[in-house]
């Protein structure tokens, strides 16, 4: 093909390429948008997605009555700030008090930040010495005591170390043992 003819052809094609380029961009963003909406729809049907259980407040705290259930995600921070994954506004609790993460073998690992402390079932945890919580374990920090309730299917071989005589079993705990009677987790 002669160079002149190719030139005209190529110059004509550049508009086509620009059009396709714009189309590719539009389609990609359309796809992003679609996926986003699909994901939102899916998550709306799964209120428990990303959560492993709840922590139940055992005694009245400021602005948080007893039996309040706090959702527990796979990983996060517990502290007094509203932005924390588990917000617990109570005196004696630091803004970001402890990190926790779910370990499928051991249970919910609790690690206070440096110079912060808490106890899990009576044993003191520290930054160097993280402790695991199982279903029914009690986390005590400052004035607050919290009982962990894992969702059905997530219980580990780790056995709860709390004794029945120390604290009376809570209603929430009771639910947890019988997976068939799940309460609404959104509450």
């Amino acid at each position: 093909m002669s160079a002149e003819f190719y030139q005209v052809l190529s110059l004509a094609m550049r508009y086509w390429f620009a059009l396709l380029g714009i189309l590719i961009v539009l389609r990609s963003f359309y796809w992003l948008h679609k996926d986003r909406r699909a994901r939102h729809r899916r998550l709306r049907r799964l209120p428990d997605a990303g959560l492993i259980g709840e922590m139940v407040v055992l005694s009245d705290l400021e602005g948080m009555p007893a039996q309040t259930a706090l959702a527990v995600p796979y990983e996060g921070i517990l502290g007094s700030v509203r932005g924390c994954d588990i917000p617990l506004p109570a005196p004696g609790i630091q803004a970001r008090h402890l990190d926790f993460w779910y370990d499928s073998r051991q249970g919910l690992m609790i690690r206070p930040r440096k110079n912060r402390y808490c106890t899990v079932d009576g044993e003191e945890a520290s930054f160097r010495h993280p402790l695991a919580m199982g279903h029914g374990s009690i986390l005590q920090l400052g004035p607050a005591a919290l009982r962990l309730r894992l969702f059905a299917g997530l219980e580990t071989e780790y056995h709860a170390r709390f004794q029945d005589d120390v604290l009376p079993p809570t209603e929430a705990m009771h639910y947890g043992v019988q997976p068939g009677k799940e309460p609404d987790h959104e509450s």
Partner: peptide, 8 residues
């Protein structure tokens, strides 16, 4: 995680 996601 919640705050981390915000930072992401």
């Amino acid at each position: 995680m919640k705050q981390q996601r915000l930072r992401y």
